[in-house]
């Protein structure tokens, strides 16, 4: 009587093993062999922080510069925050991510094979408080509801650290409401369901221009010169096509310099790509923000490692990530050395 279930279990196990070996053997073999890459997939977010990506795209520089390396097309994916962008990278759907410097931490901690190869920008997020609430010091935020991006994002990490630095317990003294998009956070502020929002630009300017609230603190005041967005590249691309990674950095440096020199054009490129934000608002945002576009990853290194410590202390990562886990500076340093020689 017991034999029949044993037969069933054996049959299920054999079928399972056959299925597993069938499902996994081919991709593993293919994944180990370098392939002739023809399409590059980018991830980015609807923020003025990442205009360098949009500028290179709008000017056609990605294709133009990468064509000699066999790239015939580029594809981009827009993400509301860094968390889903990292999930897409974990799934192997993105080769290059323009992303905040904190979402890669938990992803790399959990097994994502990728490295930060260039900086994108520092600072550039603001706290917008409802118009009827007073603000003189961080203590005025006690008891309020503040909406920001989910745990693990840059805004969540900077906000929590700043509150702790000012003797405010982010769990007990106020409510941090996790929002999956800037739109949801702005709606919550507009309807009075939260008292403040902490978002990257241009969203604080959008909220101000629509009359929902006023900017009271800029993130540079919360954490001076803090790292923000970076260029993250998959380890597969680094290992199999280092020459493409070098060119990505060259193009990124060119685009960054272009938007620094032409802020009005940068605002126009942003509004053409993110049509929900009109040109006058994105232009105002670039004038008002305390952010700075950069391409040197060394500028972001120190605070990125501090973020790693904060996230480890918060229990977001299982291990304390080091520079070697997160950064590969060799590409940027090589490109800069070559540019200096030229």
């Amino acid at each position: 009587m017991i034999i029949q279930p044993l037969k069933i279990i054996a049959a299920i196990l054999i079928t399972g093993i056959i299925l597993v070996s069938g499902c996994t053997s081919t991709p593993v073999q293919n994944g180990d062999e370098p392939t002739g890459l023809t399409e590059l997939r980018f991830g980015y977010q609807p923020s003025t922080h990442q205009i360098a990506y949009m500028a290179a795209d709008a000017k056609g520089w990605w294709l133009e510069d990468l064509e000699p390396y066999g790239i015939t097309s580029t594809k981009d994916y827009l993400f509301p925050t860094g968390a889903p962008e990292m999930l897409a990278m974990l799934a192997g759907e993105i080769d290059v991510a323009y992303v905040g410097s904190t979402p890669p931490l938990s992803a790399i901690d959990q097994g994502l094979e990728a490295k930060i190869v260039a900086g994108v920008q520092t600072q550039g997020s603001d706290i917008v408080l409802a118009n009827d609430l007073p603000y003189e010091s961080p203590q005025d935020l006690v008891g309020l509801k503040i909406a920001t991006f989910p745990p693990g994002t840059l805004q969540d990490t900077v906000l929590r650290k700043w509150l702790l630095d000012n003797d405010i317990d982010p769990k007990e003294d106020l409510s941090i409401i996790s929002m999956t998009s800037s739109g949801a956070a702005k709606t919550a502020l507009a309807s009075g369901n939260v008292d403040a929002i902490f978002l990257p630009h241009p969203h604080p300017t959008v909220a101000e221009s629509e009359g929902y609230g006023k900017v009271v603190v800029q993130s540079g005041e919360m954490w001076a010169d803090h790292a923000c967005c970076v260029v993250l590249v998959s380890q597969k691309l680094i290992d199999e096509h280092p020459e493409i990674v070098e060119q990505i950095i060259r193009t990124h440096i060119k685009a960054t310099q272009y938007i620094i020199d032409n802020p009005d054009e940068a605002a126009r490129i942003f509004s053409n790509k993110i049509t929900a934000v009109p040109y006058d608002v994105s232009s105002q945002s670039i004038q008002d923000w305390d952010g700075e576009w950069v391409s040197d990853p060394n500028i972001e290194l120190a605070t990125a490692l501090e973020y790693a410590k904060v996230q480890y202390d918060l229990g977001y990562t299982d291990k304390l990530l080091t520079q070697d886990d997160l950064f590969d500076l060799s590409f940027y340093n090589k490109v800069i050395a070559e540019m200096d020689e030229e």
Partner: peptide, 10 residues
């Protein structure tokens, strides 16, 4: 589920 998904702790 959303919280741990955002931190990639599957």
């Amino acid at each position: 589920i959303w919280h741990w998904n955002d931190l990639h702790h599957m």
